[in-house]
Each structure stands twice: as C-alpha cells, then as structure tokens.
Design a binder for these strands. Structure first.
Length: 802
RNA sequence: GCGGAUAUGGCGGAAUGGCAGACGCGCUAGACUUAGGAUCUAGUGUCUCACGACGUAAGGGUUCAAGUCCCUUUAUCCGCACCA
C-alpha cells in the first residue's frame, strides 16, 4: 500500500514555499487586495500552544483560499514581545530580555513554519525593536501634543506585591492580574490617555463594522454609556452645590438621603464643619484597604457613616436630608455622589434598611416593604407633586424639563469607561519620551527613538518606581526648551501600546520616515478579517480602535475603523473537558502532534473538532480520524485514470455541490462542516474504481487550504509542475448542484410513513397522486377521511386525515 | 444582581419551519492478514422477537408540520459587576 513520509514531504514543501517567498504580498498590485489578520503572539518561552494553531490555521485557510481566488493577500505575522514574563525571567536568570526575546522569536518562527502557515515573513514586526517602538513613541507624542496624553495626580490600582500600578483592566475584581494579590488604591502621578474623548466615536463606529454580535455587545458594555441628569442639591450649612448624577430623575421626590464616595473631595474641604471627621477618616481608611474577601462579605450589607454637621436640601421639595459616606458609591463614576431613593433602587434600599433611613414610595406597582421596586415600564408616579399619575418615562421627560429650566439640572451622558492609565514601572517596555523640566513642565522628547538604556538588573524600585529610575546618568537630561537640567520620565508603556497599531505597520514595515506610508495604508486598509481570542475583544480592540481613530482624525491613517470584520476562536479544552493548564497536566503541545501526525492532520483536526466559536475538548482519538481521511486522499493517486480528461460523470453532482458548500462554509466560519463535506465527497470518490485526473485535481484544490503540504505533493505526483499556491479555486455549475431526481417524504398527520423518488420540479398534482398510491400510505389512510393535503414541491407531502 | 450565550446518541458535533442524528470518533460483526493501534465491507438513538411506539434539558403554546418560532422553568458556560 502506498503511503508517504510525512516529515519529508512537509519539510520539502515548507522549504519550497519559504525559499520561493510564495506568500509575499505585493503593494499596489492590480489584483483586489485582501488583508487577513491574526492577533500577533507574545513569544513566550514555551512556544506555541494549540490555541495559536487554531486561530492561525483558520485565517491561513482563508488566506490560502483567497489567493486561489485571485486576491492579492496580505497575511502578516509579528511578535508582541514586550511584557512581564520575559522581564521576570530576566530578573530570575540574569539573561537580558533582549536575548530571551530573540531566542523565543526564533523558536516561534520555526514552529510557525512547521505548521505551514502562509505568512508573509518579509513583513515581520517585533514591538521591541527600536525601529518599531520609535513609532509607538511617536504616536504617544502626537497624543501628548493634542492633549490626549496627560499626567494627573490620581488614585490608581496598585499591587503591593508586584509594586506596579495597574490599569483597571489588569485588576479586575480587586485582584492583580499577574500575581493574584490584593490591589489597593494608592495616590500617584499617572500618565493617562484620554480615551474617554473617543467614547462616543468608539460606540458609533461599531455600527459600521461586522463583528460577532457578542463582541460588539462586550465593547458596548465596556464603554457603558448611560444617559441621565446631573442635579444640584444644596448643602444646607454653607449653601454650596452638591452635584449628583442620576438616570432616574423621576424618583426625585423619593430621595431620603445622599451618599458620597469615601474619596470625595467635599470631606476634606468642609472638614471644619464635620463633627465626626475622625470617624469618617477611619471609615475611609478601611474602605481603601478592603480585601476582596471583605468586599464580598460586605456586598450583603452596605457599610457607611453619616456625616454629622452636613445636610443636603432636595431642590424639588426643600426637604432637609442627611449625607452619608459609603463605599458603594464610586468616586470615578458620575460625580462620585448620588441621591438615594431606597424605594426604587435596590442598593439604596439595603443601605436604608441597614441605617434606618426612611423609605418613601414614589412609584406605585411594587411592595416597598419587601424590596425596591425598579420596574420602569409599568409603574405610576405617586407622592410626587406635579408628577403624580404619570408613567416613569413621561415623568422623566417632565422632571428633566423642570430641572433644566430652573438651572438646577442638566442633561448628562456618563460612560463607565475611564481614561487609560498608560505607564508601568517596568524595564521591558517602550520608554515614555517625556522630560520633566522644573521650569517648563512636561516636555516632549522628539529625538526618537528614545532607546531603552542598557542595564544589568531589572528589579522594580521600591514604592512603585521603575527600574530605569536607578540609571541616574540616563535620567538627568537637559530640557529641550530651556536647556536647564531636567529629568526623564522613567516609566515605560504598558504592553497594550505596541499592539495598538501593529496592523498599520504591516502595510509598510520597513519605512523609516513614517509609521507607514499613507498610500500603502490606503491600499491595504481596512483589515478585511481579523481573528483572535475572545479575551482581547474589549481591551486590545478598543485601545487599537482608539489609536486608529485618533490617527485618522490627524490625517495619518486613511480609515476610521481599522477592522472590517472580527471573529473569535473558541477555546480548546483538555481531553478531560477542562481548561488546559500546567497544574492539570492536560496540555497538548502542538509540536508533538506535528511530529507524530503531521501539520496537515493537526490543521485539519483542529478546525474539524467542533463549532469554531465554541469551546471544544481535544481528543487524541479524533485526530486519528483526520489522519485516516488524509491518507485516503493520498491513496486516490493509485486510482487515477490519466486518459480521462473531464470529471467522472457520476461525481459531477457531488463535486459541484461540495465546491459550493466548502466555499461558503469557509466564509461563514464553519470550518468543521467544510471539512465534513470534503470527507463526504471523499467517501463518494471511494466508491469508484477509477478517478479522472480532474476529479482529484478539484479535490486537492478544495482541500489545499486545510492540508497544503499533502495537496502540493499529490499535485506534483499528478505530473503538474505548478504550485498549489497559485492554483485557481474551482468554480461550480449551479445547475449541477441540484439533483435531477428528488426524494419526497410522505407524512400522514405529520408522521413519516414513506418516501418516493420523482423528477425534480414535478408539479403538486403528480406528487399528491404518487403519494396516495404508496402501499405504506394506503395502510394509514384507508377508512379515514382526508381533510387536507399539503404539498411542498421537491420536499414533502403531508396528508391530514381523521 | 445585570448582560450574552448554550443544552441534540456512548463522545465531538450536523440539520434555509419540511425524512433528527450529516461527518468523525468509539463500538459490534465479517474480510484480508504471521500479526494489527494498517486497510476494506456491513451494522450501530432508545424500547420491542416483531408490527410499531418513543425520542433534540423540563413543561406549555403556535403550525398540516417544531431541535428550529413564542411563553415558563432548570442547568452550565462567558462577560460586566455596588455604573447611580
């Protein structure tokens, strides 16, 4: 039996492709462009994992198919190589991060090639190379210049263990993303990027792109737009305004107390008037140091302390109400202060219960003795003066008009998304090119790239200082404006920086005059299909959309939205159905699989194993099925009749159908069914003792995106001296995808009782007559009255009897 | 708590409202073999000797016809999480 040496064959074709630059994208080609993008990997020391293979293979299939369809395909690869693991490894081993990164990139490059990915390796970018991060710094300075990068004294999430300031996104649930320890709030000077200036634009842009609905939803939630009213309450004791934000102005008559955040500046400002200031201080301290555990405990009840000596006045009815400090109100959202309506807000309700505040019902419909009534669809206003009898929506309109016309309220839109904390106290990142001058303030250092200085030890300084702070000679620098002694910013950028614009660099990766030429970007952008993990669909995507939109506004980039289409890969679980992890010991190393079964089998299996976007468990047994399938295709070579020029007659229908289905399945991210249809067709082929050369050529054309090495090999053995890379994707004849004979199902009262074959498009009458003649049908209708017969041409006849 | 998804054989999973279980794995029997973790052939949802009946998380509904549409419930997963 004929078989082939997988290792030899795969090596042979990889050498062929990569030495002939088979996948090089051509700038400004006459062909229609197609830009397929995968999230570039972080080159970790452990090499690729199966998740990479799945994400990369799927778009490799798309890229290979598009090339066969005549597109000029850009399918680039690069490395997002700044980052903590490399730095930590450097600290531990003393090996320079540069060296570690170079080594890991080499490993990755090798592995990528062993999987046979059709990346354009002439366009590789590495975010840690000065000729790349020069432009990352340049974009930062652009933002700085436009006032979109600013330094502010602020409360930040700080991990005492890593001694690093964390972005909100890195400290979700109050835990450090890296080490899991408790994050505390710390006052610090922090660089921010003003992404909030783009909140609306980032939301609006989602209307013009084709992302998975789930992805859009998550981005919308992340931005978290809510429309409401900012209302001025007066503080009784000194007549100053206390601003609150509410989306429920209709409940204004139900306000029984106010709550401000523990960090609210009011407390410091009016501390002379506050009688229990020390008690408040104590509470504020406690709040700042709450652990995650305590937080969860306190979620049941709401803690807080009343400010004695200060009261507020409700602007609509003049009532005097107490003010509390409580940590269920966040300084960062809205105004950091709320009006509390316990009858109609569940948090205010539980706080009121805890602290014996009155609860006044202003919307009828619920039972406020039991719980807050928050329905906004059905309730009717009561106890609310001129709002009585109105529905919630109407009341909102009316009260808003009232507040605005009297100057005590203003329509306001709030967003959950906050400005992006942009500095890290780490070595292995892009230095922030800013000089702090005692006379001129923060000044841009336009002498780019500002290279990472050499150093030997990479430990962060104490108290959240960057390792770079210890390089006194590097830090001390003359101010570019006044020429006096000044100091460099010693923090570096977060890892999100380099990945926020890499897709632009791919258009023109060797340009040393601009981040990329406008014309080349104009040719390639937008990315036609971007694919990657679900874990990056908020942070990375929103950050990079922000940068792109900013650069678009600056006239540097030609498109407003960088990604026309975005899909996400489902996780591959271990054989035990659990997430792959070292501790579970259920990790599958893709290189082991390539060694044992070959890259083609791995590629085919990884797309066959389940619905693309769903998580699916790995199965060692399953992979053998794909190996068998590919082996069988190779053995078809033995049956080829080189005399026969066209398709074997019997196979015309199945072949045309398969061409149609495989093509549309790939476009629709249904790789598993695309492969199953190829398997079905191969089962058809297996029935016949001879195949024409064309039969097999068409088959390998369809299979080529999935198993390119095997298909090149078969193609060569068929005597063809061209590469599959440039083969045409087969066309199909629509008329031949439809069978001339169809099988009609016959039901009696909706239950299947028989079938019969008949010529396609036979008329209803013929179907009906034929159905009634069937023996199996007669059994079920004799002695009964036929009430109705439903006939669906080419499909079904349903006879209704009783 | 809010938002989103998912639920189909022993397993992974297919099914524009029209023959549920494609395709693959596994399993059973047979063929070829010194051998089989190779290959080929046939079979494989459940109950029943069979005719047949029952089957897509549970319950209801719409329809000639429901895995698919509508309502209720349950379970699992993901995201956000005191967002005013």
């Amino acid at each position: 039996m004929k078989n082939y040496d997988i290792k030899k064959v795969e090596k042979k074709w990889q050498d062929f492709w990569y030495s002939n630059s088979s996948f090089t994208a051509v700038d400004f080609s006459e062909k229609t462009k197609y830009y397929a993008l995968i999230e570039f990997p972080y080159p970790s020391g452990t090499g690729m994992h199966v998740g990479h293979i799945k994400a990369f293979t799927s778009l490799d299939v798309v890229a290979r198919k598009k090339r066969m369809e005549g597109y000029n395909v850009l399918f680039p690869i690069g490395f997002d190589a700044f980052g903590l693991p490399t730095e930590n490894y450097a600290i531990k081993t003393g090996i320079h991060p540069r060296e570690v990164t170079n080594r890991n990139i080499k490993i990755f490059t090798n592995q990528l090639k062993r999987a046979g990915f059709s990346f354009d390796f002439s366009r590789v970018v590495d975010t840690t190379q000065a000729d790349y991060y020069k432009w990352t710094q340049w974009i930062f300075l652009k933002l700085f210049e436009k006032g979109l990068a600013y330094k502010a004294h602020s409360y930040v999430n700080y991990c005492p263990s890593c001694q690093v300031v964390l972005a909100n996104e890195d400290s979700q649930g109050g835990q450090c993303d890296r080490c899991g320890s408790e994050v505390i709030q710390k006052e610090k000077d922090v660089w921010f990027l003003k992404i909030t200036a783009y909140s609306e634009s980032l939301l609006e842009g989602l209307e013009h792109v084709d992302y998975l609905p789930r992805i859009k939803m998550e981005q919308i939630n992340w931005i978290g737009k809510s429309e409401g009213v900012e209302v001025k309450f007066k503080i009784k004791e000194n007549n100053e305004d206390l601003l609150i934000f509410t989306t429920r102005a209709d409940t204004l008559f139900g306000v029984t107390f106010m709550v401000i955040a523990p960090e609210h500046p009011l407390i410091e400002r009016l501390k002379d008037k506050i009688e229990n200031y020390s008690e408040l201080q104590e509470y504020r301290n406690l709040a700042a140091h709450k652990t995650e555990f305590e937080r969860l405990q306190m979620n049941k009840g709401k803690t807080g302390v009343r400010i004695i000596g200060l009261n507020a006045i409700n602007p609509v009815n003049g009532k005097v109400i107490p003010i509390f400090v409580a940590d269920y109100v966040m300084l960062a959202y809205g105004t950091g202060a709320i009006m509390a309506v316990p009858a109609h807000d569940s948090r205010d309700f539980s706080f009121a219960k805890e602290h014996d505040c009155p609860i006044i019902e202003v919307i009828k419909g619920g039972d406020i003795n039991k719980e807050a009534y928050t329905d906004i669809e059905e309730g009717i206003l009561c106890n609310s003066d001129f709002l009585n009898g109105l529905g919630v929506k109407e009341a909102q309109v009316k009260i808003t008009e009232y507040l605005v016309s009297r100057g005590i309220g203003e329509k306001m839109i709030n967003y959950k998304m906050k400005d992006w904390a942009f500095n890290r106290q780490r070595y292995w990142g892009e230095p922030i090119p800013i000089i702090k001058c005692p006379h001129c303030g923060y000044v841009a250092d336009n002498n780019l790239p500002l290279k990472l200085p050499e150093m030997e030890h990479f430990q962060p300084g104490t108290d959240g200082e960057s390792p770079l702070a210890s390089l006194k000679d590097w830090v001390r620098v003359k101010c570019p404006i006044c020429n006096q002694m000044a100091e460099r910013e010693t923090d570096t950028m977060p890892q999100w920086a380099g990945s926020s614009w890499y897709f632009l660099r791919y258009c023109d990766p060797h340009n040393n005059k601009e981040l990329a030429s406008y014309d080349k970007m104009k040719y390639w952008l937008p990315v036609d299909w971007y694919n990657g993990g679900m874990e990056h669909v908020t942070r990375h995507m929103i950050y990079s959309r922000f940068w792109n939109q900013f650069l678009y506004d600056e006239g540097i980039v030609p498109v407003k939205e960088p990604y026309a289409r975005r899909t996400a890969v489902g996780l591959i679980l271990g054989e035990d159905g659990e997430k792959m992890s070292k501790s579970r010991g259920n990790i599958v190393d893709p290189i082991d699989i390539i060694n044992e079964y070959g890259a083609d089998t791995l590629r085919t299996y990884i797309l066959f194993l389940g619905e693309y976007e769903q998580p699916s468990p790995w199965s060692e047994a399953g992979i053998k099925g794909c190996k068998r399938f590919l082996d069988r295709i190779y053995r078809f070579l033995e049956k080829v009749d080189f005399q026969a020029k066209s398709y074997s007659k019997e196979l015309e229908g199945p072949i045309n159908k398969t061409i149609k289905d495989v093509g549309s399945d790939i476009e629709n991210v249904k790789f598993n069914t695309a492969i199953s249809k190829l398997m079905t067709l191969s089962n058809e082929y297996a029935k016949y003792p001879k195949l024409s050369k064309k039969d097999l050529e068409t088959f390998i054309a369809l299979l080529n995106p999935f198993a390119p090495h095997l298909c090149e090999e078969i193609n060569e053995q068929l005597g063809n001296n061209y590469s599959m890379v440039n083969t045409k994707w087969p066309n199909y004849d629509e008329s031949k995808t439809i069978d001339n004979t169809v099988i009609i199902a016959v039901q009696v009262n909706g239950k299947l009782r028989g079938t019969f074959p008949i010529a396609k498009d036979s008329d209803k009458k013929a179907l009906e007559e034929k159905a009634l003649e069937l023996e199996s049908i007669k059994q079920h209708i004799t002695g009964k009255t036929i009430r109705k017969i439903i006939v669906v041409p080419n499909k079904i006849v349903n006879i209704v009897v009783n």
